[in-house]
Write a protein that binds this DNA or RNA. Structure first.
Lengths: 345, 345
DNA sequence: TTGAAAGCGTTACCAG
DNA sequence: CTGGTAACGCTTTCAA
């Protein structure tokens, strides 16, 4: 039976005929040994197939080079894009990330926070995940920096990376208005959602007000969340109450596509009979029929930015400030001027 | 300045007036102490807010309770669903997962493999990611188990969790044939893809052959990959060469939706003029207009199964065998009998 | 330029 | 039932 255990720094030292201190030095510090020793050590490392043990390193350095990322769900396009951004930033700095799917459950979240503490992660990212005061307290006790991506925090001092949701919604409505629409409905997420619910509705109201259009509460509908089915259901209600709507702004792309699907089923043509704007800018939007005009959030870049903020904070020991990531109205083919404008009568 | 450092097991021992061995025992073994000591120790742990250090534990136990998962991309629906399945299985066993986005790059993959080795992961999952002989060799040297999910391995001895792609495609085509179609085209992925390309094309051919329908090479088209745009482009070519096709089988949902979008743009109605079947069963399919009939792969369950196989392998030290996950034809509204059957003339 | 040794926070063995 | 202590693999003083 050959020696199955992987070689340690000790083995390398013995084999190379130097001390472990020397091996460690050529591995880490750029100094403290002769060029000749360096080459010799490097060669034996190569020959033995030695690989340093990050766990042992972590124990002594008191850092794991790992961050934890919490998501309420990971099987969606939004999460996936944010995650990809985070991953890119992490990899660029040689850090690794452990992902935690909390399923929006307080229990699972706290469980994960405990796990992350035991794993000695260097920092934590809350992605799309409500950061309650309770979580903040836990994380404070852990003593590691936190940042939030596309998430609402009950503690305003936590650095956040997000879009200006109010303005983004406002811009969408203004575009409708520019196109001549006045009968504008909205499919919202739950208004109790302080990140993606309430602010977008506020933007909708502000744009209407500035244009002198009366705000009619029943022109805003929502169901449970931000999903396709919610969009379908909300549209039914909207259409029943207000069949004369010429434009609908939806708080997510899925919501918008659900609405379009329900509208098509009712025989409405898009955009001829009904204009639609979505939100998020996921790849769903370009795949819709017709391609969906939407307010894009650049999730990839949000994830990347948030991760970098966190890494900076870890490195400097100072809390960073948040960032607003610019949104962008991507114009495709789901919006046109209302065909039955009064002047046509 | 209060004591900022987190308490260690030593601190707990001192505070509780016992030895660290005892504290360790109440933390790990269910035995070896009086009920009274246990309560006392637990109380001091609680009071001091002590949390065990998983890094130190890992060092001595020679395991990290962590697995590495490699994806060629993580911002897609398929990856996200697989990941969610893996996450669920991992969390259920108290393991954590570090994710690696290789971008299909051999360089990044090898870099990650090295990182995972240093992190002392207990096992590795290749998800949707080609497992080359070179990678197998590296992983063998690492001495940890590997399993593959929805991925092709050049080494057939590696446990794999996947769908029977040939049969799945075969079933889809048979369904077309049952509905009366004979002019059946296919939008394939790249045939050099040994997992999702070649086998699905083989299934297509077999079904045709069994039904006595001639296989016409130009009735199969593909572009670069499995994405929306590829579907659009491939459809153009298919339609130019064979405008009389009444049915198209696509090797992914995105491909199918791309084809539908291009077909709709040409004035074709679905399913009246053209029937379409997709592949994957992502949430995209149900959101299409009309809702897409598709061969579902149950990615969530594949991820979960693969992770569990890996954990078993880690625990027992024995390689497990792979699993075929049953596919399922989900019938929605993108397929109907060809309207212009010969008998109607 | 180099080596010896202390120590990071745990676990597990061996005495008592 | 309990305590002392070696060891896990590594980094980092401190001396030489």
């Amino acid at each position: 039976m050959t020696r199955l255990n992987k070689p340690t720094i000790k083995d390398v030292a013995k084999e190379a005929g130097v001390s472990i201190a020397t091996v460690s030095r050529v591995l880490n510090n750029g100094i403290g040994y002769s060029i000749k020793t360096k080459q010799h050590v490097l060669k034996t490392i190569e020959e033995m197939g030695y690989s340093p043990n990050a766990i042992a390193r972590g124990l002594i350095n008191k850092q794991s080079n790992t961050i934890g990322v919490l998501f309420p769900e990971i099987s969606g396009l939004v999460s996936a894009e944010i995650l990809q951004g985070i991953e890119e930033a992490a990899h660029a700095r040689g850090k690794s990330i452990v992902i935690c799917n909390t399923a929006s459950s307080g229990h699972k979240t706290k469980e994960y926070l405990k796990l992350l503490q035991e794993k000695q992660v260097d920092g934590i990212l809350f992605a799309s995940q409500l950061l309650t005061l309770e979580y903040v307290a836990i994380v404070r006790k852990m003593g590691v920096p936190v940042v939030t991506v596309s998430a609402y925090s009950e503690d305003p001092t936590i650095p956040a990376v997000q879009v200006d949701n109010e303005t983004a919604a406002y811009d969408a409505i203004c575009y409708f208005i520019q196109q001549g629409h006045t009968e504008i409905g909205m499919i919202s997420g739950n208004p109790s959602d302080l990140l993606a619910g309430a602010p977008r509705m506020a933007g909708y109201k502000r744009a209407l007000k500035e244009a002198g259009i009366a705000y009619v509460p029943t022109k805003v509908a929502w169901d449970k969340g931000f999903y396709f089915e919610d969009g379908q259901k909300a549209f039914q209600r909207l259409y029943t109450d207000h069949p004369n709507l010429t434009a609908i702004f939806s708080a997510s792309d899925e919501l918008a596509i659900g609405a379009m699907s329900a509208a098509t089923a009712k025989g409405l043509r898009i955009p001829e009979d009904l204009s639609v704007i979505g939100f998020d800018g996921t790849k769903l939007a370009k795949m819709a029929v017709p391609p969906l005009t939407t307010v894009s959030q650049h999730f990839f870049s949000m994830g990347k930015t948030a991760a970098n903020l966190l890494f900076d904070s870890i490195a400097t020991g100072r809390a960073s400030s948040g960032r607003i990531i610019r949104h962008e109205l991507i114009k495709r083919h789901s919006v046109q001027m209302p065909s039955s404008t009064k002047t046509m009568d």
